[in-house]
Simulated scan of single mutants.
Amino acid sequence: MPDHVLITGGAGFIGSRLARRFVDAGHTVTVLDALIPQVHGDDPATTSPMLRSIADDVEVIQGTVTSTDDLRRSLARATVVVHLAAETGTGQSMYEIDRYVETNVGGTAKLLDLLTNEENDVHRLVIASSRSIYGEGAYRTADGRTVYPSHRADADMAAGDFEVHVEGEDALELIPTGEDARLHPSSVYGITKQMQESLIMTVAPTIGIQPVALRYQNVYGPGQSLKNPYTGILSIFSTLIRQGKEINIFEDGLESRDFVYIDDVVEATFLAATHDAAGGHVLNVGSGVATTVHDVVSALFAAFGTEVSTRVSGNYRLGDIRHNFADTTALQQHLGFTPSVSFRDGVEQFVQWVLTQPVEGDNYQRSLDEMASRNLLK
């Protein structure tokens, strides 16, 4: 039977595409979104393509998860909830702590409080968790043990040593990080995402709601905000390339992430909300491939057909990790789904979309200045 799906943060990059996926599958959708200018511009009805793409087909409630009244109104007919609403950005979270905790943790607590104490028809609750809760990813020692290195020391990185270290161990081999890995987030953002996930996975089963936690890796693709300097290096570097400006590559450029294409993320999330076998599980959503910053720059240059100067500066941000890429075995096991868009193909599609968009102002440098003024960027 069709569900009535509430998507918090549903006018955003992931949410708007997910809303379209549910509508196309015959479900009814309500979107709760704060429509903040950093993401949607000053007049969302005209400045937000994401909002415009769904406005005629879903109920849009402009509001916030920090408001009990907004949440209550949004939950009125919901049978499935996909909780995407969150403040995002590892760096920004380190100095806007109260805002991140209030929205991410406080908003989730309010949602669960309403579901616990007021009548509702919700049977499935999907939380958009994050790879950031792992902190550093998994590594294998020379004798075959799996270890999870602690956060890198400021003194080591200042000396140009950006690798992770475990006392008493020689060189470590990077391996995929599974859902049973140690959770030790290195940023306020990561801590709030861990708390969101823990709250939902603990409370929902006690009130008869099946929870699913999806630990998204680095999501990218057409529709990603080019205005928001906290959305990731693909958007940031694309804007710099179009402006003809130099790209400052942090650390040594060998730090890596798992980049997963938006269409794969939307499909995994749709299945998590509708597939019977998903209930109760925590699942990584990633490509399962580690991609370095140098790889990102190379792929963007190829897709744009042009290059700008690059500088490997040795700059680094406190709270950043060195490596993490997902083990996606459980995603295949429980949802029968494996992300299929390669990074090269995904970047080509992303760049083709970027070229249709206006060249945005350089908000990135302002974000770096904010971090440097707080001694978080070295």
Rank of each mutant, 00 (worst) to 15 (best):
E307A: 04
G286Y: 05
V297G: 01
R317V: 11
G314E: 03
E251R: 09
V296A: 01
F301W: 14
Q243C: 01
S287N: 06
A290P: 06
V260T: 09
A273T: 14
V296L: 09
D327G: 03
D320P: 02
L283C: 00
R317Y: 14
T274K: 04
E267A: 05
D320R: 14
E307P: 00
G305A: 00
D258P: 01
E251D: 00
A299Y: 07
L283R: 08
D252S: 04
E307L: 01
G279K: 08
S287H: 08
S313R: 13
L300M: 04
D258K: 10
G319C: 02
L318I: 15
V297M: 04
T269Y: 10
K245D: 14
R311E: 15
E251M: 03
S287T: 11
F304S: 11
D276I: 02
L271T: 02
V293I: 06
D320C: 09
A290F: 08
N324L: 14
E255I: 13
T306W: 07
I321Q: 09
F301G: 05
D276T: 09
G314V: 05
S287E: 07
D295K: 10
H275C: 00
D264R: 06
A278G: 02
G314R: 04
H281P: 00
R311K: 15
F259I: 12
V285N: 03
G244Q: 05
I247W: 01
T292E: 00
H281R: 13
E307D: 11
S309Q: 13
N248T: 11
L271Q: 01
T306D: 09
V308D: 11
S313P: 10
T310K: 08
R317E: 15
I247D: 01
V260R: 10
G280C: 02
L254R: 15
E307Q: 10
T269L: 07
R322V: 03
V296I: 06
G288H: 07
D252V: 06
T291Y: 11
T274E: 04
S298L: 14
T329C: 12
S256N: 13
G314S: 01
E255F: 12
D264H: 06
F325Q: 05
H294Y: 07
E255W: 14
D276H: 10
L300I: 04
S298K: 15
A299V: 08
R317M: 15
D252C: 01
R322I: 02
K245P: 03
A277E: 15
V297N: 05
S309K: 13
E255D: 13
H281D: 12
E307T: 08
I321D: 08
